[in-house]
């Protein structure tokens, strides 16, 4: 099946926009769940960029990297959510501004 002739510029622009949104969310939200969600958004945007690059050259490499990114995201979320559970248990709150015992 043949793909659409999508201008690379616009796909990458979309990826950039999604990334910025994720970054905004990371810096803005205090709840750790939302921060993790923003991280997922950012990872997704990066993956989009990779797949677009692969589609430009018509090679499988972009999708392979996409797969690896997915793996990373999965592992990260698993461990991250486990940590979230522990944070909730110890700090009794999900507010990341309260978890600053590692301050210098």
């Amino acid at each position: 099946m043949s793909g659409l002739q999508v201008p690379m510029e616009q796909v990458l622009a979309l990826a950039g926009l999604l990334f910025s949104c994720g970054l905004l969310g990371l810096m803005l939200r205090r709840n750790i769940i939302f921060m993790l969600m923003s991280l997922e958004v950012m990872l997704n945007a990066a993956a989009l960029a990779f797949v677009a690059a692969g589609a430009k050259w018509g090679q499988a490499d972009g999708q392979i990297i996409f797969l690896l990114i997915l793996t990373i995201a999965a592992a990260e979320v698993a461990v991250g959510l486990g940590l979230v559970l522990q944070i909730q248990r110890r700090f009794k709150t999900l507010d990341m501004d309260q978890a600053r015992r590692l301050r210098g």
Binding site: R29, I32, D97, A99, R100, L102, R103, G104
Partner: peptide, 8 residues
């Protein structure tokens, strides 16, 4: 003082 310990 830059090491606030806050993630954000």
């Amino acid at each position: 003082a830059l090491q606030t310990g806050e993630l954000r």
